[in-house]
């Protein structure tokens, strides 16, 4: 375990009755990084985050948050953390301002109130109306302000852009990036792959309570399958291309074009193509979403 780790989970297990929500999660998030946590509903994302804050107690394994055992000293962990739950529920009878003052009170009035107002302005959030009059998106903004307003060392954000319009989603991602620039560690779960791809330096993919992949976002994308569309000046025999290691022919026309799937480096394919009269060569980089879905498709195939 690195002493510098902002978050560390080893062999983390948690069950709800017969449902095994976490089956030995191993995770390490370095200080100052933005870490994306991907997985579909029920994969164990929220359960992991709630274990980190001692809202639920794991059945087994070890957890450290900023070097602290959350079960031994949950108050110390929470004092240095900002949390946005996936299912945000607020007192409907309080105004936005009273709600934020209440949460600030729970933090011993440690928040930077000027900063809180600044975030609210950036998110176009009015502080006067009662919570019950707010749309889902505006409630989410209240959740974001309360998570950020005390400038925490660690942000645990469960689906931070849920219910926000694209403009506000972009603003939230900017806030996350700014928090990182100011030294914070950001651990966030999301369904929206494009936003994870945009800000996360590393990602973990969780499937049925197990981490199946942890990697730098860029390397995960680079080393994944990609497609290559090749056009030739004249009809050719593509037989030699099909024999290139890591290359699969997906479709071909009358010998003047071919769609290939390439696993790993492109070097062998490019060298093989040197012997062909190539008129055009295009590659498609897969999105993080395609990579993410591939893990689930592989799993389904294994089950079949």
């Amino acid at each position: 375990m690195s002493e510098e780790a902002a978050l560390m989970a080893q062999r983390l297990t948690k069950s709800y009755g017969k449902v095994r929500a976490l089956r030995g999660v191993d995770l390490e998030v370095q200080r100052g990084e933005i870490f994306g946590y991907l997985g579909p509903n029920g994969a164990g994302k929220t359960t992991t985050i709630r274990c980190l804050l001692d809202l639920i107690r794991p059945d087994g394994g070890t957890v450290r948050v900023l070097g602290i055992d959350p079960q031994a000293d949950p108050v110390a962990v929470r004092a240095r953390t900002g949390y946005l739950p996936g299912e945000l529920a607020l007192d409907p009878n309080m105004t936005v301002e009273d709600t934020l003052h209440y949460f600030n009170g729970l933090r011993g009035n440690q928040a930077d109130w000027g900063f809180a107002r600044q975030i609210a302005e950036r998110l176009d959030l009015d502080l006067k109306p009662p919570i019950k009059n707010l749309s889902h998106g505006n409630k989410q903004k209240v959740g974001i302000v309360q998570a950020l307003m005390h400038r925490p060392e660690l942000l645990l954000l469960d689906e931070p852009t849920l219910g926000l319009d694209p403009l506000m989603q972009h603003e939230v991602l900017r806030l996350i990036t700014e928090a990182k620039a100011n030294g914070a560690t950001v651990f966030f779960s999301s369904h929206i792959m494009s936003e994870v791809e945009a800000v996360a330096e590393r990602v973990a993919i969780i499937r049925e309570g197990v981490i199946v992949e942890v990697a730098e976002t860029a390397s995960l994308i680079n080393r994944a399958l990609r497609r290559a569309n090749v056009r030739f000046k004249q009809p050719v025999d593509i037989g030699p291309l099909a024999n290139v290691p890591g290359v699969t022919v997906l479709s071909q026309d009358d010998g003047t074009s071919v769609l290939l799937q390439v696993e790993g480096e492109m070097d062998d394919l490019i060298k093989a193509l040197a012997a062909f009269p190539v008129s055009d060569f295009e590659t498609e980089r897969p999105s993080l979403e395609e990579i993410f879905l591939a893990y689930y498709e592989d799993d389904q195939k294994e089950e079949e």
Partner: peptide
């Protein structure tokens, strides 16, 4: 039951 305790308990307040 209405989900509010989750956020309250995520603040530096002991049980």
């Amino acid at each position: 039951e209405n989900g509010r305790l989750d956020l309250i308990m995520a603040h530096p307040v002991s049980r």
